[in-house]
Simulated assay, not measured.
Amino acid sequence: MELHELKGGYDVLYSLGHNCLPASQLNHSKIRNIAGVIDWMMSPHLSGVSALLRDRFRHVMLWDNLRYHGASSDSGCYVIRDAAYDLYSVHDFPMEDNDPGILESYPGLKQKLDYRANRFLQLMQSGKRIFFLRTEATLHETEELVQVLDDLVAGEYKLLVVNHAQVPYIVQIDYQLPNVCTLLIPEVANIFQDNHTLWRTILEGIYNTMTNEEINAYLLQNYNT
């Protein structure tokens, strides 16, 4: 797909990782209208995300799969890995409130993730047009993800993959996959700050057609959640 083919309105717009960047940039463009399950996690391998979606989130962040992975001075939180899917929580376990062996914040986090997962799955079956954004994905990983999304999404969806590379500007590459647009943008010192202008260009013309309140009201009416 060409970038211009992504332009238009979407019921919901979701981040699929690889870190906080996609959700952050959707926020900056004021088009992120709903919270996803892994918005603020690290998911370095897209295959783990595909497995998570294939499993319909059934095992996300189960206690027995959690591993202590250190601490983040940037977030002030313990880094906790979900070994089943190679996901890393970096914002959910504040060091001042948690012991790394006890993780007092875990029950609240699990409840929140399960709620968001259930909402995600409902929207995959009822949304007419859905937008996904993933940073850092190989061709093989993207092929696998498309197979999972084809099975998961009842309506129309578009997937934008943005990889960082040694390029001077936005460069489009062709993975030759339906519903997928793949771009390269410059590798920079700070991926969260230094490519803002390019991200505004990429996401220009993409917008949401429902507010968060409208989405939740729709789900409440149709799914009694």
Rank of each mutant, 00 (worst) to 15 (best):
D97Q: 11
P94G: 04
R116D: 01
P94H: 05
I102E: 04
S126K: 07
P107L: 10
D99G: 06
A117M: 01
K110E: 12
I102C: 00
D97F: 12
F120M: 05
S126F: 05
D99T: 10
R119F: 01
L109S: 08
P107C: 13
G108M: 13
D114M: 10
K110P: 05
M95G: 11
L113Y: 10
Y106T: 06
G108C: 11
R116Q: 05
L109I: 13
Y115W: 09
D99R: 11
L113Q: 12
L121Y: 02
N98W: 06
S126Y: 00
Q122R: 10
S126P: 02
L109C: 08
N98C: 08
L121N: 04
A117H: 01
G108H: 14
A117K: 01
M124I: 02
R116F: 01
P100I: 09
A117C: 02
K112D: 08
S105C: 10
S105F: 05
L113D: 09
R119C: 03
R119L: 08
D97M: 13
Y106Q: 08
R116T: 00
S126R: 10
M95H: 04
Y106L: 10
L103M: 14
G101S: 15
G108K: 13
M124P: 00
Q122E: 14
R116K: 05
E96G: 08
L121P: 01
D97G: 02
Q122A: 14
Y106N: 08
K110W: 06
A117L: 00
Q125T: 04
R119P: 00
P94W: 05
L123V: 02
D99N: 15
L123G: 02
G108A: 13
F120R: 05
L103H: 12
I102P: 00
L103P: 15
G101R: 15
L103Q: 11
F120G: 04
P107H: 11
Q122S: 13
L123Y: 00
F120L: 03
A117G: 09
S105W: 01
N118W: 07
P94N: 03
D97R: 13
D114G: 02
P94Q: 03
S126M: 12
F120D: 07
P100L: 12
L121G: 02
Q122C: 13
A117S: 09
M95S: 08
E96C: 03
M124W: 03
L113E: 10
P94Y: 04
Q125W: 02
L109N: 06
P107K: 12
K110L: 15
Y106V: 05
L103E: 13
M124H: 06
Y115C: 06
N98Q: 06
S105E: 04
P94V: 03
M124K: 08
L123A: 01
N118G: 15
L121A: 05
R119Y: 00
G108L: 14
P94D: 06
Y106C: 07
P107G: 13
L103F: 15
P107A: 13
D114C: 07
G101E: 15
D99P: 07
P100Y: 11
Q111P: 02
Q125N: 03
I102A: 01
F120H: 10
L109R: 10
S126H: 06
K112E: 06
M124T: 11
R116V: 01
I102D: 02
A117E: 03
P94R: 07
D114W: 03
G108N: 14
R119N: 04
